[in-house]
Nucleic acid binder design. Structure first.
Lengths: 145, 145
DNA sequence: TATTGTTATACTCTATAACTATA
DNA sequence: TATAGTTATAGAGTATAACAATA
């Protein structure tokens, strides 16, 4: 029946809340910036993997991003339909699909990278370059621990 | 057909990825720490709102947390069934439910707060107190901007 | 037998729409 | 008419299970 609880913390000033809502806000900004290119931030994650220079199977893309291989199927279906990636069986192991960016996919990735960088800069503008660099290092350390 | 893309960024070293996975990791740690108390991090969010000293309607809790009022119903159903909160009509406006922590709810909140603080300390231990404080300030600023 | 991609299915989370009771 | 709570429903997102092709 009591409403007394010791030490009631401000619900908005808790690390879990801050992390979650920073993620939500940044994802929303990124999705909006990428929308004119016909992709969202999840697609962009896959494009970043594919934009590296090794031939990559669907499974490798999925594992790099930490998502299930069945989820990757639907994601690539869309990108293939939009002409951004191609799939073809790996001649060396025909169970695998080699996934590659098309020329249009490379242009889309380049445009997306530019849009992403602008979004990130705008998002981080409120704290200045030192705090931004510190934020990146801190998050990296926390994820490695 | 090309796999050449200018400036392929490491998919794991991008602010969106870092924020998302820091959130996922911290939420998983918090959920695990709260699990013995029969609540998760979302429940704990509601408890933090209720542990403040004002009488609070369901709608106020939902709006404080930024979730829909229909989602709040199911969340409070569970907490009420567990004897952590009570609901009763507000005498001054019988459309509203006043939600309060029970005595058991206050004890649960106190134990959860302790468990949460231990989790947060352990999570932040890898970066030291200065970087932890800086992280909190930076996230707060980014959310206010 | 194990692995890759696929499909069908189920589960979680959350929001929208419609209903009730109160104002 | 508008608001608070509730219920039913639908949508997004993602995972599990089962299957075909290949190793």
């Amino acid at each position: 029946m009591s409403t007394e609880a010791s030490d009631a913390a401000d619900p908005h000033d808790v690390l879990g809340y801050l992390l979650k809502h920073a993620t939500l806000k940044f994802t929303a900004l990124t999705d909006a910036a990428l929308e004119p290119l016909g992709i969202d931030s999840k697609d962009f994650g896959a494009l970043r993997v594919l934009a590296r220079h090794e031939p990559t199977s669907q499974l490798q893309v999925a594992q790099t991003l930490g998502i299930d291989r069945t989820t990757m199927v639907a994601l690539l279906d869309v990108l293939e339909r939009e002409g951004i990636v191609t799939r073809r069986p790996d001649p060396a192991d025909r169970r695998r699909n080699v996934v590659e960016l098309t020329d249009h996919g490379v242009r889309t990735y380049d445009a997306a990278q530019t849009a992403y960088e602008e979004t990130e800069s705008a998002f981080l503008a409120a704290v200045g370059p030192d705090a931004a660099g510190q934020l990146r290092r801190t998050l990296r350390t926390l994820l490695e621990a």
